[in-house]
């Protein structure tokens, strides 16, 4: 684990996390404070990156938007991992009807393109972070189930599992103490992958007005609103675009790095 962070992508990721989570502890301007008189004001000592169309501090908004993107995506990935892995392991371990059933359910979810599924769910349950996390989780549960299931299938036949079984260990014990640690690698890679996908999906939903709710800032929504005023205020568009691209880029790079670390062959992948 430590090894994963001791790399350029890992350090960059840590830097972004620090930026998003530690910086707000300092007395930054309120990202929601409206000051219409100072709309479109350029950078100043009080507002390092300038102010947006409502005179809100751009830097604070970017930082808060990145934080909520990370929290929502991380939360969604965690929820999806817990549910998906549980289903996958139980299916792979117990087999039989429960396996067939749960895998078919996952197939049904996979029939929906992710953005479509998220849109349907967001209109069904309303937008906002409280629904975004379960909605995004729902989209990504199948991917965890598949990975967990496949991993269990490869592990379960192996000698050490049989050995523990012979020693009379209970099923939960076998699952948690023996199987889970052995399939942690692929799951961890999958987790980071899902975080990236969630960030992209969340920003897309927010861009369409179905994600994070105003007044809370979100990168997708900031990009959507700034498009209209691009000709006069290009910076208001480029700043959130850059923030989003850098966030996804670093997460992607970290993802690749993890894959590299956990891949036994250590050869393929960029």
């Amino acid at each position: 684990m430590k090894k994963a962070f001791k790399s350029p992508p890992g350090i960059l990721l840590l830097a972004i996390l620090a930026l998003a989570f530690i910086l707000p502890l300092f007395p930054l301007p309120d990202p929601l404070a409206i000051d219409v008189d100072a709309r479109y004001a350029g950078p100043s000592a009080a507002h390092l990156l300038g102010q947006d169309e409502y005179g809100r501090d751009l830097m604070s908004r970017l930082i808060h938007a990145m934080r909520s993107a990370i929290v929502i995506s991380g939360g969604a990935a965690l929820l999806a991992a817990i549910i998906g892995v549980t289903i996958g392991i139980v299916a792979g371990y117990v087999r039989g009807i429960s396996e067939a059933l749960s895998l078919r359910v996952m197939d049904v979810i996979l029939c929906f393109p992710p953005l479509l599924l998220a849109m349907l769910a967001a209109t069904l349950y309303g937008a906002g972070p409280k629904t975004l996390v379960p909605v995004l989780a729902l989209v990504f549960v199948p991917s965890f189930t598949r990975v967990a299931h496949a991993s269990v299938m490869t592990v379960r036949g192996q000698e050490y599992v049989d050995a523990v079984k012979l020693m009379g260990a209970s099923a939960p014990r076998i699952i948690f103490r023996t199987i889970l640690p052995n399939i942690a690698g692929p799951l961890f890679v999958q987790f980071s992958f899902v975080v990236v996908m969630s960030v992209v999906l969340e920003s897309g939903l927010s861009y369409l007005g179905l994600g994070v709710l105003p007044p809370e800032p979100s990168l997708g929504m900031m990009i959507g609103s700034a498009r209209a005023t691009f000709a006069d205020q290009p910076w208001l568009l480029f700043a959130p675009c850059m923030a989003l691209v850098v966030l996804v880029l670093v997460l992607n790079a970290f993802c690749d790095h993890l894959r590299h670390v956990f891949d036994p062959r250590n050869g393929s992948g960029a």
């Binding site: 967001a122 209109t123 309303g126 937008a127 007005g209 179905l210 709710l213 105003p214 007044p215």
Partner: peptide, 9 residues
């Protein structure tokens, strides 16, 4: 407190 669903809702 804001309630802001999509237009149809």
């Amino acid at each position: 407190n804001l309630t802001m669903p999509d237009w149809a809702t």
